[in-house]
């Protein structure tokens, strides 16, 4: 027998669960199952073999992983730099700065990415400044390159790690850092021994958001990468809507979902403070 409140709880959850299951999970499951079905209807991984046999697909897959990893790494570094500075501020200006960090999340990604097109062109601001200061002899091609996509994604996703890191670091006892300083600990020791362990959860949450955001973003690679710098999302869109190739699309779908889930599991483990590669302590 289930107790009455628990039963009531089940009833209250049911609509949301049923709706998401029907209007989201079921169609997705059907699409994913298609990736394990070969053209002749047999079950197997044949489609994956075909997918990875194509050198373009391999390259796009690796590029997606690479960009996802680099964007996550850069956001973690910049995120800590910003978050540590933010928690050092007095409460009033801290609120204002957090507001400024939140702001870009609310602005349409289309608008935000559009700015990079203006910035990165050969006669754009970046090239003019670089030329002015003598860094470059001739304007560089920046648009439609991997660095352009990297920059666009970094700017898009950085706030998503700053905010959880700030929440996590705010919980670090106020006197922990000065105490460690007095005991002669260096900057790096303080970070690794005190700040990092205490902000692991924020790191995990933010890291997942940034990595999955980077590998699943559509607008940024579409606008800044174009056809020369395809990522899995833009390749998927092209396969579906330009070449009408659903088979490849289902494989990409499965890869993207798998990558998100694996990243989530890995970073959750980091967040719980367990070293990678060892079993659960429970």
């Amino acid at each position: 027998m289930i107790a009455a409140p628990r039963l009531r709880g089940l009833l209250l959850m049911a609509p949301a669960g049923a709706f998401v299951a029907l209007a989201f999970l079921l169609p997705l499951a059907i699409l994913l199952s298609g990736s394990f079905q070969a053209e002749d209807g047999q079950l197997g991984v044949q489609r994956y073999v075909q997918f990875f046999a194509d050198p373009l697909n391999r390259e796009v897959f690796l590029r997606t992983l690479r960009i996802g990893f680099l964007v996550t790494l850069a956001s973690v570094i910049l995120g800590y730099v910003a978050a540590l500075a933010i928690v050092d501020l007095d409460p009033g200006s801290r609120g204002r700065v957090i507001g400024l960090v939140t702001l870009p999340i609310m602005i349409s990604p289309v608008a935000r990415t559009y700015a990079w097109i203006v910035l990165l062109g050969r006669t754009g601001l970046v090239n003019s400044v670089a030329h002015e200061f003598g860094f470059t002899d001739a304007p560089l091609r920046l648009l439609y390159t991997e660095p352009a996509v990297f920059l666009g994604l970094l700017q898009l996703l950085l706030p998503l790690i700053i905010l959880p890191l700030v929440s996590a670091l705010e919980n670090v006892p106020r006197d922990a850092v000065p105490a460690a300083r007095m005991l002669g600990a260096g900057w790096w020791t303080i970070f690794v021994r005190i700040l990092l362990p205490l902000s692991r959860e924020g790191l995990g949450v933010g890291g997942v958001l940034v990595f999955t955001g980077a590998i699943t973003a559509y607008i940024t690679p579409a606008m800044l990468g174009g056809a020369k710098v395809l990522m899995l999302e833009t390749l998927l869109y092209q396969r579906v809507n330009v070449t009408d190739d659903i088979a490849t699309a289902t494989v990409i779908t499965a890869l993207l979902v798998a990558m998100s889930v694996v990243a989530k599991a890995l970073l959750n483990r980091i967040a719980r403070g367990r070293p990678l590669g060892r079993g659960r302590a429970r």
Binding site: A23, F24, P27, L28, I30, L31, T212, I215, T216, Y218, E233, L236, Y237, V240, A249, I252, T253, L256, V257, S260, V261, K264
Partner: peptide, 11 residues
Amino acid sequence: VVPGIVVGLAL
């Protein structure tokens, strides 16, 4: 966690 493009296609 599921990419929007995939959701759109599946739906």
